[in-house]
Design a binder for these strands. Structure first.
Ligand SMILES: [Mn+2]
Ligand SMILES: [Mn+2]
Ligand SMILES: [Mn+2]
Ligand SMILES: [Mn+2]
Lengths: 217, 217
DNA sequence: ACTTATTTTTAGTCTTGTCTAAAAAAATAT
DNA sequence: ATATTTTTTTAGACAAGACTAAAAATAAGT
């Protein structure tokens, strides 16, 4: 049986593995988890004992197949609960993450599989992130970040990289939402800021914003 | 903020207050919580500090108004989740308790109020227990235990006192379910066992069983 | 009333997960 | 190649919540 803390570490390491290939550094985990490196060292030793990750001192950590499966299952639960909150309980997409952060640790195979069915086997969560199946498989983000588009490129908004409440509220204010068509009107080479058009409205967004929005061309 | 352990103690003490009036003994709490009396002493000191219960050494504990409200809110969550699991996710009434035991600790006002609405503001959980409102008020069990009925008395099954999986499975096997009409055909004075009739089927039940079924006359 | 039995509390230990401070290894700079 | 900086690990401490064993208070028995 997995403790709440162990599960959160596994999830964090799983997410870090997405971006950085190879062994994940102790410091990177500490930053993601908002803890100190010494606490991380203790925990990765324990997870290593349990066969959930491979670890050699001073060399960083990498999840085993078993560890990846456990992590993917937590992410599966997190995202299914987010769908539930939005679809069934009228939460907005900026309200769901913190609650899902708690719900993802509820232990019941039947619960999560019935929930999946109840929701109609959704493929994406409210932020456009893919939902893993029971075996931990999930369709990749084959999509591209808005920041990589050039002048006159068009696409559809399909996801966000940052699901913080503040970022999502900003998007709401600007009328940026999943499924909307977007066109790059102009791009400033100096700071990568863009003028974009959504539904006949044109406005500027910074690179920081454009770097957190996924587009399907 | 309340820890998981604190919440479980409050709930246990709340339930014990139903039966025994006056101060709840340390040992009674220990038995209900499956811990040792010494652990209970530590915890009731902490809850007393927090103003959730009144405690004088060697004299037992009693919840304050504040403590009762917190406990009732946990019970509210527990029972609403049980309704959700049965009504929406096709759980049987003997499967829900353990999962609800986890879900009751999820912290989100909005979640529980939206869930309440989503379920149509149910008044009873799958075992016939009343669901408290936001202020901790709940309709009492005005009902009577089956064991108190006499020969030829009739009634409707409206609840169970024991929600253990094994007891509920026994009831399923016998065709005993909430809403069913029941008639006492005969009662043995020696051991209080009864012959009862449900839907033209007659069979014997022991006092132990009759003592855990609520009837509305 | 005095002795025994029960209940409750105290004292001290353990585990989990965290922290700070110091030591050790690895990476970088001169 | 050696010195300096950064990263990582070790050592020791702490809080929460549990336990065991012993002491203190209360209750029961004669
Ligand atoms: Mn999320
Ligand atoms: Mn989490
Ligand atoms: Mn229950
Ligand atoms: Mn509980």
């Amino acid at each position: 049986m997995m403790t709440l803390s162990e599960e959160n570490y596994l999830k964090a390491i799983y997410h870090l593995s997405d971006t950085c290939e190879g062994g994940i550094s102790t410091n990177a985990i500490a930053e993601k988890m908002n803890t100190k490196a010494s606490s991380v060292t203790d925990m990765i030793k324990k997870l290593s004992e349990k066969g959930l990750l491979n670890y050699k001192r001073y060399k960083g950590s990498a999840l085993t197949a078993e560890g990846k499966l456990v992590a993917a299952n937590i992410i599966r639960k997190h995202r299914l609960w987010e769908v539930f909150l939005v679809e069934k309980l009228n939460f907005t997409w900026d309200e769901v993450h913190d609650v899902a952060e708690q719900l993802e640790h509820i232990k019941s195979e039947k619960l999560i599989n019935q929930l999946d069915e109840f929701l109609g086997f959704p493929k994406r969560d409210p932020h456009g992130d893919p939902i893993p199946d029971k075996d931990g498989n999930m369709s990749d983000h084959a999509d591209v970040l808005l920041v990589t588009l050039n002048k006159n490129d068009k696409g559809i908004i399909v996801g966000v990289k940052d699901s913080s409440s503040s970022f999502l509220k900003y998007l709401d204010k600007q009328g940026i939402a999943l499924g909307k068509k977007i066109k790059v009107i102009d791009k400033e080479p100096f700071d990568n800021s863009m003028k974009i058009r959504i539904k006949k409205e044109e406005f500027m967004i910074s690179q920081q914003i454009a770097n957190n929005i996924y587009i399907k061309k």
